[in-house]
Each structure stands twice: as structure tokens, then as C-alpha cells.
Write a protein that binds this DNA or RNA. Structure first.
Lengths: 348, 348
DNA sequence: GCGACGATAGAAAGCGCTTTCTGTCGCAGA
DNA sequence: TCTGCGACAGAAAGCGCTTTCTATCGTCGC
């Protein structure tokens, strides 16, 4: 039926062992023999049986990349970068590259766990978890335990944009300094003279949401400015759009709005415009992440630039073992304030 | 070392065969036995060995989703939709769901083939190819041959947003009517009175690019209007931004620009603004796809709406076998013209 | 009360590869 | 000329699961 390694061996008049060695290239094989085998592979159009190979070798070429929302460019960019780093990373076993696969958890803890189990089943070579996680203690513990078990079984685990919890402490982690970014953004607004600042936060109980919000509050506290209204929502445009009405209802004198991220900021801008408010004339708006479209937005978005691509690449390299993990395990990646046109001094 | 099925069997005082049957739930097992086994699984924290399972059963739970650019929401939305349909689709073998994994080809034919081989190695249950392909005859033939072989080996193959080539004729395919969409868009512009229309196309030799462009030309021809300048580039914002200068150089009297897609359109708008041209006052701009950000763009983009989410879901169901393939194999999905603020009548 | 049948469960033969353990052969060194 | 070693290749033992083929047992029909 299907062509097996034994068929190739027969055709090349060598033993299956030799064929395997040629294919995996990790054992000396005479050039002439190698060529004979390769020719047979070619002629028979042989494709290695992955499961059989993984079973015998007790590892696979799979690298899992878990993201919260694949339709969000924030994750798309990081995942894409990681995937290219993994591909470039040279050959895995079986003469091939690693198969980087991205799994969309939709931010659901259950799906995250399901995917981890599936990857564990497949004896994945590595797994990268991207993006903040839910801060539910039970979930965190379950995930940490599973990751620990996978790591123990030889799977390399990398966190990217996700802070390690105590149980994860030994894993390689790249974390964005969301708190400092949030602080800087608000300081910028404060510096312009804003004193009534609304905040559209992401889903409560998410690490990213909390850190950004904390940074915001730190800046406010340091400046002795009272906190404005805050509303929580998802990380999409609709959330930003919907939040404006509530923010304005709670604080009609608002002169600035900080959004959970750039996508949310876009929704905020749209809602503001619908109400006839100009940006930044009437209300300044700031985002976070600096996604590709942010520079083209009208007005161009003031935001915090995160090196998404670079981080994704590094995560990929860490997963491949091409790059050493940061000494302490965790590395904090700073964001850079990017001031554009969507923020300005409040009207006197 | 690791817990195996035999360990579970020993603990539950049954044979390995019974444990397997409990886990796969496709054979009658007495309730009491089943429960004993399940308890042992629980206590031992057993995780099925995927490769071993796939090897013995000759199939796996993997479903591959190939996309051209994972960082592009166009693909993100479809992939996400497909993935959820696949997840919802109930249990695969081994009491688990299918593992939908998305693979980023970056539009490269080589990587596409590499991923297909890897998926073939893994004996994937299904594979979905999303997005247009390169129109290189050699590549097309190689891909078609590989897909045919995979289909023959039991892998379900689905095309989504990608026209089947002769060799693919038997595969289930969902294809967007890019030609009609392109035609309608240009008809809209023509109807407004535009007669000098520039076109920013995607990469040449891509099916999507060609079909959209052909639709554009059809409309022009039908109206007896001369074709304006066309420039080719990638499907990103930078391409749109860069194209404007050339378009304007070749036809200074331009009153409208059609972009390859919404992302490109955004770049076009930005470049136009930088030159002090107003939209649609000086130049009308139209996109394609209707991505989420398009409605928030300023001005809101006139575009062709493609049911990305719905198509992704259907592709997922086709891959799961939950939904029947269209009778002829290929189904054409129409796009809907959405007129917003970025197009208007040209200045007299 | 006997043979038969349905419901369960076990035995065992692989699935297709990797890899350790053994050779075999040719040649350098003594 | 003989020993020893390096280079290469084969034999064979699994890897951990699925599944067919069998065996057992309680029960039902007559």
C-alpha cells in the first residue's frame, strides 16, 4: 500500500537501518550507499511515517505556538516571527525542519489546556505560549503543573508576553514591561496637561490588562491626579467603541482616553467621531502595541511600541535552543512611547 | 519513566486492550470496568502517546491549516473560524478533538510544499489551504500531485479562497468571486463618474491578484473607459503607500485608486494625505475584503465584503466531514460591494 | 436442562521506524 | 605477517498503542 522504509531498503539493496541513517544523517554512511538510498527514496516517492518515527525516537518535530487570538495582528506578528525563526533554525531530526504550528486558544483556559495535552500527546519538541494569561489561581496552577511535566519530559517551554507564575519560574520567559509602558503613556498625557483621563481596559483578570492599568495608576498617583473612569471589555474594536458612551457618562469633562491597545483605541476614535468630538482637539486618545495600522490611523495613534517581531523571533530561537535563555529565566522587554497625532494638549 | 497504557492496565487490573477501548470509546466496555480504568488514568496522570496511537491506527488527529500570511487578519479571521469549527466538531479518535494547527507559508511555494510533506508525514486527518496561490505551472503541478496523493491516503483536502487547478478538480473548494467583486467595485467608481482610475495590484502571478484585476478590466472594457496605470506590489500597507507616487507620476489626473485589498488601501490613503490630497474629494479610494478596521478608517473604506468568518467555518466543517462538499466540488462565494466614505464623485 | 447467543475481556500480532549491539572488511602499524 | 582499529552496514529488539481473533460466562429460547 504505502511505501515504507523497508521498501526503500529493498530497492536500494541495503538494510532498513541504513536507510534510516541516511535519512537522519546522524551516522556515517558511505557516499555511494547514501546516494543509492536517496535515489530509491526518490524513485519510490517515499514519505517518512511521522508517527512511527516519533514513536521510535520518542520525540517529534512539532513545535506548538499557543496564541490567544489568531485573528489579532498582535499575535499574528509574534507567531509569524516565531515560526520563521523556527523554520530557519536548521534541521530537526528526520532531515527536516520543525513543524511550527499555531494553536488558537481564544483566550479560553480550557482550550489552552486541551491544546497543551494534545501537544503533550504528540511529544512536541517545544511549546511557546504567547500573550497574557487569565489570572485564575486554579487555572494558573493547572497550567503550571502541566508545563512542568512537559518540560520534564523534554519539551522546551517558552513564554512570550506572559509573566511566569511561581510554578513556571524555571521556564524561559520574555515579558513585556506593560506596567512601565502604561506608566509612560499616562505620564505623557499628564505632561500635556490632562487631568481627567478615562481608561478602557481589557478583560479583567488578565495579566496584560492588570499590568497596563497598574502602570496607569502609578503615574496618576505619582502626579497626585485623581483616577478617572475605567471600563473593562475585550481587546477588540467593539469594546472601545462601546466604552466611550459609558466613560463620557461617568465623566463628561474627560479630555483624554487611554485604550487597552491600538485596536480598542480605533474603536474609541470611531465612537468619539460619531459624537462629533475631535481628536485630539476635544479628546486625546492613546493606544498600546503600535500595530502596523496605527501609523495610518487618522489621527495617527500615540501608543507604546512593543517589539513584537523581535520578541517572536527570540521566542522561536529559545524554543529551538538556538539561543540561550536569559540567565534569570525571565527577561523583561521594554516598550517605547511613540507620540503621534492622537494626543495633544487639552483645550484650555 | 513515563506512564504507559500498560501501567494503567496493570493498575486497573485489566488488559491493555480494554484500556485502549475505554479511551477510544468505540467498543462496549462494562460500566464498572470503564470506571475503574478511568480512575487509574486519573491516578496515574496518564497521557496517551500520540505517535504510538497514530502509528497503530494509521491516522492522526492533526488538521493542518495552511495560510499565506498569518499576520494578516484576512487569514487570521478565516483560520480562526476554521479552527473553531474543527474544535466544535466533536471528538476525533482517542476521545479527543482534532488538533487544528495553522502553518504559515509566507506565500512561498517551497514552504507550502514543505508543510504539506510534514503534514503528510504526520498522516494528518485533513488539510485546508487558504488563500490564493502562486500561478507557476510547475509549482501548481507539484502541489496538485502532492494533494492528490494525500487525498488518496485518506487525508481530506479543502481549498478555501483558492481556485482548484485541473489536477485538484476532485477536491472540495470554496472560492471567492474575486473577479465579480473587482468588477462591481470598478462599476461603482465608473458610476460615480470616474474615468481615470489607478490600480494597486497585489503580487503578479497570484490567482487572487489576477482575478481582481481582471474584474476591474472587464468593467472598464464594458464601459469603454481606458485602463489607467497599474502597479504591482505585496499585500501590505507599504506597497499601497509606495504605489501612489508612481500612479500619480503616470497619470497626474487620477481621480480614483482601487487597491488590492483594504490593507493596501490604508497605505494608499496615508500617501495621498501626505501629499495633501483629500479623500474622496481629490481622489477616491477603494479596497477589498472588508476587514474589521476598514469601517473605522478615516474615511471609512468603500470595499468588497467577503464572508471570511463564514467561509472559514465552512472550510473547517468540510475538513471534518461534518458538512458535505458542494456537488460540483467547487463553490463560488460572492462578495458584496460596501459603499462607505472613501469614494465619491470626482470633482467636476 | 441444553445449546446458542450476546456481552465482555484477554492474547497477541503487528504498525513503521530507530538504535544498540554485532559483525565484516580493509588497512595502518609493528 | 599479524594485531588492532576505524569505517561502515546488518540483525534484531523494541517504542506504546490498536485491533482482530478468541475465550469466557451468564442468560435466553425451546
Amino acid at each position: 500500500m504505502t511505501v515504507t522504509l523497508a521498501d526503500v531498503a529493498a530497492r536500494a539493496r541495503v538494510s532498513p537501518a541504513t536507510v534510516s541513517r541516511v535519512l537522519n544523517g546522524n551516522y556515517p554512511v558511505a557516499a555511494s550507499t547514501r546516494e543509492r538510498v536517496l535515489r530509491a527514496v526518490e524513485e519510490l516517492d517515499y514519505v517518512l511515517n511521522g508517527p512511527a518515527s516519533s514513536l521510535a525516537a520518542a520525540t517529534s518535530d512539532l513545535v506548538g505556538v499557543l496564541v490567544n487570538d489568531i485573528a489579532d495582528p498582535f499575535f499574528g506578528i509574534m507567531a509569524s516571527a516565531a515560526q520563521s525563526a523556527i523554520g530557519e533554525g536548521g534541521s530537526g531530526r528526520a532531515g527536516g525542519e520543525k513543524l511550527a504550528v499555531v494553536c488558537n486558544t481564544g483566550g479560553s483556559p480550557e482550550r489552552e489546556l486541551t491544546y497543551l495535552t494534545l501537544l503533550q500527546r504528540q511529544r512536541a519538541a517545544a511549546v511557546i505560549l504567547m500573550g497574557g494569561s487569565l489570572e485564575d489561581p486554579e487555572h494558573l496552577a493547572a497550567t503550571a503543573a502541566k508545563l512542568a511535566r512537559m518540560a520534564e519530559a523534554g519539551t522546551r517551554v517558552v513564554l512570550c508576553g506572559r509573566p511566569p507564575v511561581p510554578g513556571d519560574a524555571h521556564l524561559a520567559a520574555l515579558v513585556f514591561d506593560n506596567r512601565a509602558g502604561g506608566r509612560r503613556l499616562t505620564e505623557h498625557l499628564l505632561g500635556l496637561g490632562h487631568a481627567r483621563i478615562g481608561y478602557v481596559a481589557g478583560p479583567a483578570d488578565r495579566t496584560t490588562t492588570r499590568h497596563r492599568l497598574e502602570g496607569h495608576r502609578e503615574a496618576l498617583a505619582a502626579a497626585g491626579v485623581a483616577e478617572g473612569p475605567t471600563v473593562h471589555g475585550s481587546y477588540d474594536r467593539a469594546a472601545g467603541h462601546a466604552a466611550v458612551a459609558e466613560l463620557l457618562a461617568r465623566e463628561p469633562e474627560l479630555t483624554a482616553i487611554v485604550a487597552a491597545n491600538d485596536t480598542v483605541a480605533l474603536g474609541v476614535c470611531a465612537a468619539l467621531r460619531e459624537r462629533g468630538l475631535s481628536i485630539p482637539g476635544d479628546v486625546s486618545v492613546a493606544g498600546f502595541d503600535d500595530l502596523p495600522f496605527s501609523v495610518d490611523a487618522v489621527p495617527a495613534l500615540t501608543t507604546v511600541h512593543l517589539p513584537l517581531h523581535e520578541s517572536g523571533v527570540r521566542a522561536g530561537r529559545l524554543a529551538m535552543g538556538t539561543e540561550d535563555a536569559p540567565p534569570t529565566g525571565t527577561e523583561t522587554i521594554p516598550g517605547a512611547l511613540v507620540v503621534r497625532d492622537s494626543t495633544g494638549a487639552p483645550r484650555a
